[in-house]
Amino acid sequence: MMRGEQVGSFVFPRWTNVLRPVLAVALVVVPAYVVVLLAYGASPRTTNVGYQPVQPVPYSHALHAGQLGIDCRYCHNTVEVAAHAALPPTQTCMNCHARIRTTSPKLLPVRESYATGLPIPWVRVHDLPDYVYFNHSAHVRRGVGCVECHGRVDTMEVVTQVHRLSMGWCLDCHRHPEPHLRPPDMVTKMDWVPPGDPETYGRQLRQANNINPSTQCWTCHR
């Protein structure tokens, strides 16, 4: 070997030949990985579903709405006339709890709120972005049941978000509402099932109640 060959020239070692096929594979695998990561990681199914905040009072919908069968509207009484389904004032809790479980430590924040007039800091579970103007009354009065968006709240000890509540999810129903419709007087019946085929029955209801959900931008965004 001559001395001159060793100076001023670099020879790739033989193993670098492997890098070419490795690089080819990486060019396919890495973009695919990024796509999968974004598609699943940023999907509302991952980011939105399963939100279950700790509430100041361990109020059980399973007991009140499920076991005792109290109608949703007993507490959320604005849902049929307003955009916002109101959280009940402390007075509504005290309708019963002035007489029932009057010394329960779990209910202490309720009694404190009633005595001081300061609101109970309930944590909102189903919270849409501020540029969305969802109207409860428009849906409830046309026969979209509570359960369609909120799930079986009557079986939840702690309320959890079970649906995506994303724009695509809203549009699924706005484009094809039939399987999500029921007679308007059944909206709060969580265990209601349509008689017969949901599709056919939904089509009848849609016709009877003249339901034409809009898919225009301005329906939900102003």
Partner: peptide
Amino acid sequence: ARVTTSGVPRI
């Protein structure tokens, strides 16, 4: 994240 619940609001 897809199979568990979380007390933290969505990011």
